[in-house]
Amino acid sequence: MAIKLTVNNQPQELDVDPEMPLLWAIRDHLRLTGTKFGCGMALCGACTVHIDGQPTRSCVTPISAVAGKSVTTIEGLSSVAGKAVQTAWVGLDVPQCGYCQSGQVMSASALLARNSKPTDADIDAAMAGNICRCATYARIRAAIHQAADSLPASQAKS
């Protein structure tokens, strides 16, 4: 039976194995390839998407668990916080190989949406689940602070 959900504000119906992780449904079936596969065990964060606004590892989330919910991928990231994060990412030249950065941006956007002025400890707590083998961590931290500074506190959530 097809599973109905919303992806990037578009209604979608997916007739796939209900156990299929959301990651493979959005990559292979919806062809939204910005969300990356890194580990398949929720260990690296490359697959992070927002489900009803919450940062979620799509590689271990069965598609059946997302029925009726709203999924935002990097392609659909349009929140004020999300845009501020991407602007800071580009401005500080955060990416190196870039493969993990979709997940980093999604985790950082979710952080700023709930905490518009995160401390270094807040950043550690929110971002420690996202691995970057190029170790762009120093710039990720700086970019989150820069994005936060660019953001009036009241706007982050909109």
Binding site: T33, G34, K36, I74, Q86, W89, V90, D93, P95, V105
Partner: peptide, 15 residues
């Protein structure tokens, strides 16, 4: 500025 920062910050860089 890196020429690939935008594509790699928006999920559009193709691997």
């Amino acid at each position: 500025p890196r020429l690939d920062s935008h594509s790699k910050s928006t999920g559009t860089q193709q691997f």
